[in-house]
């Protein structure tokens, strides 16, 4: 089972595809987690931990001039990471269905707002 922040980072990597690296992942996670603030450091820590767990893999790209001649560390989801994200989505869906059935359409509308 993965935590909420890990779910956000995995979602960001999955949606960004080839362009998933520190800055873009942080921006995407900040967008998904709003109004909560997300720091670049927190994203690095999570990426590092998930790489160690084998959920994601990383590689260095060629250096680019807009980054002061520095390389990017790009990330992609491993099969285990993709499965973990799928499991989280299925669980979230179950929670949603259960609550909307128990509390009715008015509650669903309130959440949507």
């Amino acid at each position: 089972m993965i935590g909420q922040f890990e779910q956000l980072v995995l979602t960001a990597i999955m949606t960004l595809r080839e362009d998933a690296y520190g800055v873009t992942i942080q921006a995407k996670v900040a967008e998904l987690a709003r109004p909560r603030e997300v720091s670049l450091g927190a994203v690095y820590v999570t990426l590092d931990r998930m790489e160690e767990k084998g959920l994601v893999a990383s590689w260095l790209t060629d250096p680019t001039p807009e980054r002061g001649g520095r390389a990017k560390r790009c990330y992609r989801l491993e099969a285990v990471g993709e499965r973990a994200l799928q499991d989280s989505v299925v669980t979230a869906k179950r929670i949603w269905d259960e609550l909307s059935e128990a509390l009715g359409q008015r509650w669903v509308k309130e959440i949507g707002r």
Partner: peptide
């Protein structure tokens, strides 16, 4: 390498 690059980009 990549942290400096990311900081530079921002």
């Amino acid at each position: 390498e990549h942290v400096l690059g990311d900081l530079c980009e921002r």
